[in-house]
Design a protein around this nucleic acid. Structure first.
Length: 594
DNA sequence: GAGTTTGAAACT
DNA sequence: CAGTTTCAAACTC
């Protein structure tokens, strides 16, 4: 096998690859010494710090560990005697830590060992996965393999040569991650970091060509990749791993292709062979108004040396709500991936939602305060009737735990009332929870007092701020907590409703595009573009208003309108957002309950 | 399975 | 250090 392969190599190749074997053995006396010296340096001086990892005969424990993580045929790469005896020798890196692991990991389950197919490198260069992983080739499909025990001398030379070139050659490329590259999911990627960084140009770092992607880590500032989509919050990346298709490799590849085609295609389209930096800049300031491109936001979130230089406007919002990769659509006849939620969420929607939630929260607090005070007043009236002063009564309620509990119960009961009859309470609830009327004047006074207190306590610390009732508790303290809880519950419920609507919208759009694509598939062979790059599908800001038959019949009104309309029904507060929504005309008459 | 694409490694 | 070549894996058909 080996003899034939040797003949195949070109003279140049013979020359270049001779570094590992015969010529080196024959004529590299001085170089050998130098390499040993270098190696010593690498392993001892700098290596100590750098953690240079060298092939080493595994000790039993290490062998057991290796056996645990690798298939049976994996052979730990033995260290040359010189190296093995050196105190600075490092344990062999875990093959799993390498971007091209010999153990293929799929969905967290180690699979069979990869077998290299090297033909020209004799498995003595880092091209060879086995060699790079620090293991002997075993049952590989390689030709003229020297990465085995029989060629230990040559292999050792190759190791030294490799280390001479790059003392970190056998170090893990991925900075240690507590979880390793096992879990190929969205969040798992944030843990590791490629020491050297990738240099991808065309893959968008969403294919296994990319070492970062392959190691299931996010690209980092070490990377010099172009048009990277392998970063936290990347729509394209999320599209790969999220959704019902997360386990569908075909879908993942399709999504990756769509993402790459959309952005890389456009940039590639617009950029003739320029220098990398120029091209990188063009990605931002190209003719297609990429300043608005979410990719800028993405890259802004994520400093990449190649790109951040030219990115003054990176203060753009990093909110995960984006409009998709819409600007990459400018590349003609390029299919572009767009989120199904593109055009559903607009920045103004988010602002409106926040405003509405604030108003809603205030209303809840206010309503609860009213009800609570109404209840208290009722109690006070009853105690007055029994000749007990209201002050005494209050004092007693302060001191008596049961009284406090009663107050809490009252409050929670009022919450329940509020749940059941929110409309009444917001309309004009001058009524105690039990339905008995309360003096409007008294109610107004108490309401103001309570409202001020509640809002003052709630607003600075936010809706989640429960810490403010830790000290100086009065009888209202527990009521305040109840109010907080109720505020939180309602606000979260509202957010949940919004998210549910978003999901619904996305599903509706998906259905729409799917049926449209099916319809059009017979007419033209263009790939399915969910973002409507051809303008046939997604023609505007609010697709549900378009004269698309499907959209007209099946797509609900805008999210913001629904959100606002819902809030309007529970709030008396006039709000410009609400007014705008009401003017919209498409407002829904009513209103899902919280 | 053959051919192509891709990016790291090696080389100049 | 930048540009080019080599290489093998990843990918496509």
């Amino acid at each position: 096998m080996g003899e034939g392969e040797a003949g195949e190599s070109s003279p140049k190749r013979q020359q270049s690859e001779a570094g590992g074997s015969a010529p080196e053995n024959s004529g590299a006396g001085k170089r050998l010494a130098a390499r040993q010296l270098d190696f010593t340096r690498g392993g001892g001086g700098g290596g100590e710090r750098e953690g240079v990892v060298l092939p080493e005969h595994p000790q039993p424990a290490a062998a057991a560990a290796a056996a645990a993580t690798q298939p049976a045929q994996v052979v730990a790469l033995p260290l040359p005697p010189l190296q093995a005896s050196h105190p600075a020798v490092r344990r062999m890196e875990s093959p799993k830590a390498r971007p091209r692991p010999n153990v293929e990991v799929k969905e967290g389950t180690p699979k069979k060992q990869k077998q290299c197919n090297c033909k020209h490198s004799r498995c003595l260069k880092l091209y060879c996965e086995c060699f790079a992983s620090g293991i002997y080739c075993d049952k590989c499909n390689c030709s003229n393999c020297h990465n085995n025990e029989e060629n230990e001398a040559a292999r050792r030379e190759a190791v030294e040569a490799t280390l001479e070139r790059n003392p970190n050659a056998f170090r893990p490329k991925i900075a240690s991650s507590p979880h390793g590259p096992r879990d190929r999911r969205e969040d798992a990627g944030a843990l590791g970091k490629h020491n050297k960084g990738c240099h991808c140009k065309k893959s968008g770092c969403l294919k296994k060509y990319c070492e970062c992607f392959q190691a299931n880590i996010l690209c980092s500032e070490n990377c010099r990749c172009m048009d990277c989509k392998n970063f936290e919050g990347s729509e394209e990346r999320q599209a790969l791993f999220h959704g019902d298709h997360a386990n569908n490799m075909a879908y993942i590849q399709q999504a990756a292709n769509a993402a790459i085609t959309g952005a890389v295609g456009s940039s590639g389209f617009a950029s003739p062979p320029l220098s990398k930096k120029k091209k990188g800049q063009e990605l931002f300031f190209g003719s297609n108004s990429t300043v608005k491109d979410p990719s800028i936001q993405r890259l802004g979130q994520f400093p990449q040396p190649n790109n951040t230089k030219a990115t003054a406007p990176f203060s753009l919002s990093s909110a995960p709500v984006t409009h998709g990769v819409s600007n990459t659509l400018s590349a003609p006849s390029k299919c572009t991936y767009r989120s199904l939620l593109a055009d559903i969420i607009q920045p103004q929607d988010v602002k409106e939602l926040c405003s509405v939630l604030v108003v809603l929260s205030g209303e809840v607090a206010k309503t609860l305060a009213e009800e609570k005070n109404a209840k208290e007043k009722q109690v006070a009236d009853q105690t007055e009737a029994s000749l007990a002063s209201s002050t005494q009564d209050r004092t007693q309620s302060l001191k008596d735990p049961d009284g406090g509990k009663t107050a809490a119960d009252n409050c929670s009961s009022s919450s329940q009332v509020d749940k059941s009859g929110h409309e009444e309470s917001v309309s004009d609830s001058a009524e105690a929870p039990n339905g008995r009327p309360v003096s409007p004047g008294t109610l107004a006074l108490m309401c103001d007092e309570q409202d001020t207190m509640f809002m003052a306590a709630a607003s600075p610390s936010g809706l989640m701020g429960h810490d403010c009732n830790s000290s100086s508790q009065v009888s209202h303290g527990q009521g305040i907590t109840e109010v907080y809880a109720e505020q939180e519950r309602i606000v979260l419920a509202k957010v949940r409703d919004c998210l549910n609507k978003l999901i619904t919208f996305g599903e509706i759009k998906e259905t729409k595009y799917s049926s449209l694509a099916r319809t059009e598939l017979g007419l033209q062979k263009d790939p399915i573009c969910n973002g409507g790059a051809n303008g046939k599908i997604d023609t505007g800001h609010q697709p549900w208003l378009e004269s698309n038959s499907i959209a007209r019949t099946s797509v609900p009104p805008p999210l913001s309108t629904q959100v606002v309309s819902t809030a309007v029904s529970t709030s008396r507060t006039d709000n410009s957002n609400m007014s705008r929504a009401l003017e919209n005309g498409s407002i829904q008459p009513k209103v899902e309950q919280i």
